[in-house]
Design a protein around this nucleic acid. Structure first.
Lengths: 188, 188
DNA sequence: CCGTATCCAATAAGATACTG
DNA sequence: CAGTATCTTATTGGATACGG
């Protein structure tokens, strides 16, 4: 599930997956990818020249389970044992923004948000109470957030001040955006 | 997840869980239940006298993940490697009926269906394109299905003739009911 | 019936070194 | 970079016997 989650927003290289899945060893990642490929969930693909690098991507069917994985994450985050300070990948934080967004609070708001999370870059489009996410370089965004994934999580979910991360663009929109993700009540 | 699924329609005894989770040994089941209890997903409860037996039940929070487990099952059933002849528990088949029901086909139909699947008994209420399921003795049902879970699966999903299982009550309704679960396209 | 305790075999996984 | 190969340890889980 974790490997597949990392592929939710598009193809990744072996080394990226290994880096983002903290603690996984090369042989285990190889085995996981082979399993997923055998089962038709993941596909190996060679990017066209001049890139010509090998990447792994989710198949159409594999991609269909991504929203369920995201919802499982939302459910699990309410565990009394959940530790929000643990490392989180950039895919995981972007996915969490999609599931944790409060549609009511966001209903009236439209904006385009850019994210630079280490090497990874994302653009999120907020519209009609929903958040669409793509992995691509931020262009013409209202706001650009720059942070490590755990720092962004601290701001959005932990109530840390916006100034703990780097924000460019419309500060009003940024300030409002980070209030759209109320913590659901803890279970127990 | 499998233990939790077995608790989706209400509390179960240790021996029932052990019997329904084919192949699980007592020590592993004990460990799983302890884990789930530690995490606040499952609760141990003593039924009031005169029953006075110990049962395990999902907590409110634990129960919230059941629909996701059901959806994961629906997704996984489209695997090219999926073998529908494998053993299936009565909880699993009832859950699958809820997720696999085609809302369009069922839109105009209302009925109350009873199920005797070995020792287990369920009542399903079909209304407005949805299926509500309760674990209780069938009373005043339009139809009563009696079969082992895999046989019922063969009829509903495998196109096996209705006569391969025992059916009491309104045959018209029974015949129509079993057509409401079209197989989704296989992936790959 | 509801587990616990013990033992053992199989598997999974981290570390490391190495290859095209 | 993208893996494979090998080795070693840790964990898992089945089987079985036993206790409240």
């Amino acid at each position: 599930m974790l490997v597949l989650r990392e592929l939710a927003y598009g193809p990744r290289r072996f080394s990226e997956l290994k880096a983002d899945l903290v603690g996984i060893s090369a042989n285990v990642l190889t085995q996981r990818l082979a399993e997923l490929e055998d089962r038709g969930i993941v596909r190996k693909r060679k990017l066209p020249p001049p890139a010509s690098v090998q990447v792994y991507e989710a198949t159409d069917w594999g991609l269909e389970v991504a929203p369920l994985i995201a919802q499982l994450g939302k459910w699990a985050a309410r565990s009394p044992l959940h530790d929000p300070t643990l490392p989180i990948s950039h895919v995981a934080i972007m996915m969490s923004l999609q599931t944790m967004l409060d549609a009511e609070l966001a209903a009236g708001m439209s904006a385009t948000l850019g994210f630079r999370l280490g090497e990874a870059q994302y653009v999120a489009n907020l519209h009609g109470g929903r958040l669409e996410v793509e992995r691509r370089a931020p262009e013409q965004c209202d706001v650009l957030f720059m942070a490590a994934p755990p720092e962004l999580a601290a701001v959005v979910y932990g109530g840390a001040p916006l100034d703990t991360i780097t924000v460019e663009g419309d500060r009003e929109i940024a300030l409002r955006f980070v209030t759209l993700f109320p913590l659901p009540p803890k279970a127990g």
